[in-house]
Computed example of a mutant assay.
Amino acid sequence: MLKQYRIRDYDFKLVLLVISLTVIGIFAVGSAKESMQKTQIAGFILGLFLMLVLSLFDYSVLLKLNWLFYIGNFVLLALVAVMGETKNGAQRWIELFGIEFQPSETAKILLILFYAQFIMKHKERLNTFKNIGICCILILPPLAFIFKQPNLSTTIVLAVVFCVIMFVGGLHWKIVSSVLAVIVPVFVITLTIILQPDQSLIRGYQQTRILAWLHPEEYATTEAYQQLNSIMAIGSGQLEGKGYKTNVISSVKNGNFISEPQTDFIFAVIGEEFGFVGTCTVIILVILITLECLLVARRAKDLAGSIIAAGMAGLIGFQGFLNIGVTTGLLPNTGVTLPFVSYGLTSLLSLYIGIGFVLNVGLQCKSKY
């Protein structure tokens, strides 16, 4: 499983970018909720170790376990539905062998690995009705389990990552355009239905979040409260921010105007304390990590490597866009974490494991760009 690699082929740039973003996250978490900073640091150290170890294992060998990844993921998500722990009205966590974690986060990585091998094995016949149908059928159970938790944001992220995987896997442009021709009107119709008072497609609180996004002034003291305060916090930071762990009385964070600022709204804390400079730094790092993964995907020795790297690029890029879009009011409140920055050990470790695979893909690339 271990191979001989050249040190000069190791993607130290990607490692540095990921570490830089994580360190910013550790500082931000420490300011948002100091009691969680040590746990985040421990997660960073463990994640870094797992990333380095996995980067030296031949991904081609590990991908032979792809069906084990899929079945294991299915079992974990099913256990959440049966015996998962409920927090804040959502059943997303499970405890096994004394360790509590969130299988919907590990699902993102496990499914990328599963499809990388599955699509490469059937790449010559991917554009047949049979294989496209199989790929779609296999993604439905994880999406259904995660949606029922309820966890709409992760369902959306996973669906987007699946689309990226299929496109990189070689899905024909004619099929892509045909699907888009169907999806766009269906999306418009679905959104119209969702906005109706008696709709049953999504839960009531999810509908209220969309309405609060469309009409924030009508929900200023309820559902739009956090987003409006988040925008206020980011704007109040101006160019350089109010300073790390600011004790300014008017601070949105200190006034507890944002619940759980260490997770979904960590970007607001960064904006308030580090200003425009801090938020731009985070955005640039997310973009650079995404682009670096895409560059690795272009140079991969095989299709499986391309899918792994592109899948991680899609995951990090889209989830980052979703989180920042929510905190700045560009998107409805979906409750998704900011990759490598928000507090959450399962999310952090899963991302580092994914980057470990990307690094190994990079070590076996055909040639340098």
Rank of each mutant, 00 (worst) to 15 (best):
I266E: 00
L180M: 12
W67P: 08
S55F: 01
F340P: 07
G25M: 03
S347R: 00
T128K: 09
V358C: 13
P103L: 03
N256M: 10
C136Q: 13
C163L: 13
I156L: 11
H215Q: 15
L110Q: 02
L331K: 05
F44W: 01
G329N: 07
L315I: 07
D58Q: 03
Q4H: 15
L351M: 06
A224S: 14
I146W: 01
V160G: 11
F187N: 08
T279E: 09
Y343K: 08
E34N: 10
F12M: 08
L46R: 02
L359K: 02
N88T: 14
Q102S: 14
F321Y: 12
G72T: 10
S31G: 06
Q364E: 05
V358K: 10
S60C: 05
L152G: 06
T279W: 00
L62A: 11
I137T: 14
G72K: 06
G47L: 04
V168I: 12
A297H: 01
L201N: 09
H172F: 12
F267R: 00
Y343A: 13
A300M: 07
G43C: 14
I249F: 13
S31Y: 07
K33P: 05
R298F: 14
V75N: 08
N256Q: 11
T192K: 12
L171C: 07
Y70T: 00
F57D: 09
L158V: 04
L285F: 09
Q91F: 06
I183H: 05
V176Y: 10
L63A: 05
D302S: 12
F114M: 03
R125V: 14
I234C: 05
L110D: 02
Q102D: 04
E240W: 14
Y205G: 12
L285T: 03
